[in-house]
Design a protein around this nucleic acid. Structure first.
Lengths: 131, 131
DNA sequence: CCTTGCTATGGAGTTAACTCTAACGTTTAT
DNA sequence: ATAAACGTTAGAGTTAACTCCATAGCAAGG
């Protein structure tokens, strides 16, 4: 697959694909005799992985670190799986943070007609433990 | 309260408080005889509201629109509450998106030792319905 | 009274993550 | 065989959201 096909497959601008490669988010893509990029299945899986994490708000810098660790930590499969688990944990933490804001808004909505909306109460609604 | 006290109370740089005010995320703050900002309880509640939504990833532009609508839509309390509900809905959608990525990572982790990690399977894990 | 420290402003600088442009080679369609 | 369409690169430009800087007014301590 060439860059145009991959671009269409994932709905990603070609410039972004080249940018991600330059930044080391995806491996260096093989070239044909003209220097044109040829994306393998493996490359495409990797792009999907990066795309999904980027859509979830994971910054490029952090992904770069993960990828570098993943590639330069070839010791054990265990280590690599742990990296995925770390990434998942970060996302779980992120949903908890957003959940706190949802709780806060729910409090504001439920008490919208009350006159006694104090900062203290709103803060408590925000800090309310996420189950 | 002056800008320094508010800055400390919320752990926000003074420049950010001035920036948010300039952008219309918070109302124009009253000034004392020297032109120094004096933050009321109301102002501080507003700042907390903006802070919480910003931490949840809501962009400044979107918040600006919400605030403008909120202030220029003085007709009914109902309309205003609906704006809060819209904001909450956006956040809920956002957590669902992140949940999809968590599902995808969970799939990758659970099948880490399998050799047949195809793009199709990973994509299905990602698209899996969130309950 | 003078220095240190707080406030203000307008505007410049920074970082992240693209996105676009220019200059050039290749391939395809007419 | 030549124009249109696509690929390459290096590097400039853009947008968001701050963050910093220079300049200047007011103010409290020694």
């Amino acid at each position: 697959m060439n860059i145009n096909e991959v671009s269409k497959k994932f709905g990603l601008p070609k410039d972004t694909l080249r940018y991600w490669e330059k930044e080391g988010l995806i491996p260096a893509i093989k070239r044909d005799q003209n220097g044109y990029r040829v994306y393998s299945e493996y490359d495409q899986n990797w792009i999907f992985y990066i795309l999904v994490l980027r859509k979830a708000g994971m910054p490029v810098k952090k992904l770069k670190q993960f990828v570098a660790l993943y590639l330069h930590e070839p010791q054990t499969r265990k280590k690599r799986r742990e990296l995925l688990e770390m990434q998942r944990d970060e996302l779980i933490k992120q949903t908890h943070d957003i959940q706190k804001t949802i709780n806060y808004l729910t409090y504001k909505i439920d008490h919208f007609d009350d006159q006694l909306l104090t900062f203290e109460n709103e803060k408590l609604a925000y800090e309310k433990k996420v189950d």
